[in-house]
Design a protein around this nucleic acid. Sequence first.
DNA 1: ACAAATTTTGCGACGGTGTGCAAAAGGTGA
DNA 2: TCACCTTTTGCACACCGTCGCAAAATTTGT
Lengths: 165, 165
Amino acid sequence: MLQKRIDDQPSISPEMVREAQQILHQHLKRVGLKHTAQRDTILRTFLETREHLSINELHRLVQKKDARIGFTTVYRTLKLFAECGLASEVAFHDGIARYEHQYNRRSHHHMVCTGCGSSVEFFSPEVDGLEQAIGKKYRYATTRHTFQIYGVCEDCRKKESARLA
Amino acid sequence: MLQKRIDDQPSISPEMVREAQQILHQHLKRVGLKHTAQRDTILRTFLETREHLSINELHRLVQKKDARIGFTTVYRTLKLFAECGLASEVAFHDGIARYEHQYNRRSHHHMVCTGCGSSVEFFSPEVDGLEQAIGKKYRYATTRHTFQIYGVCEDCRKKESARLA
DNA sequence: ACAAATTTTGCGACGGTGTGCAAAAGGTGA
DNA sequence: TCACCTTTTGCACACCGTCGCAAAATTTGT
């Protein structure tokens, strides 16, 4: 059971849903966008999950609530969530974009198993400091960074040695 | 001229080409693959470049030497180069896979301007150490990591403020 | 409550990555 | 050199992400 996720966001309470909706609505107001039923449905569906969701996966979940919501809308709404800090995109280098909850979460990074795709989250403040330092050195106004470690988890290594035996 | 690339591989000498070809041929022998004219052409073309090449760009350069070589072959050959350590894939998060020379290069990372797409290479041994430490902590056999910083370079910031004026 | 203005939506299309398959080419042994 | 076996090649196609566009929906002002 070493595969457990390190997670500082144990569960989604009704208050958090309301808070998230408020953040979204304020953001919409602020930049002059409109409040639609689709965006609310997609936000609620997204908040009910805890994994790293691909757009396709979220789209399928959303369609259970409202079958008329299209893939493109989910795609663009996730970008919108990322803009107002409710979600963040994580690219695990397999060609599929994934999104995770971001609001009220500590900055963290991911280590991904190339065997089974499972991931461990870890915290590393040094990396955040590095972004600042390198940006300053080369006069970039940095906005974000990506840091992922790839490897093979213990379970997959055991399975592999069992397979070879 | 702050945009200059930090690069410890000033130019490609004939010896380096021969050395690279030898690495490729040994790798092919070792894993039982075959030596083809296409692979040689693609390797020579790749070595003649110094930038971060997309598959499409390399394919276009290759076609100048042999118009019958297809995109898929270039695509798969670059993966092959990555396997034997001659190239490494760099994902700049814009949906396009790029490859750069890897053999005899120091481990480095990239800071990418989201305005013009230019990149600066920087060296950060701390990050390499971090891969080891985190892998050990969670019992992953780590194979590699990705670390990129995104931001806006000084030139683009100047252009932007000029545009707003 | 209604009409005008603006935004959103979702279809369709496109570019890039990735893979199955039949034809072609390389390697091997005699 | 030739025949056999294996790999490679490049086409075709599928998938994901992204964008333009016309129809639908929301907001605003009256």
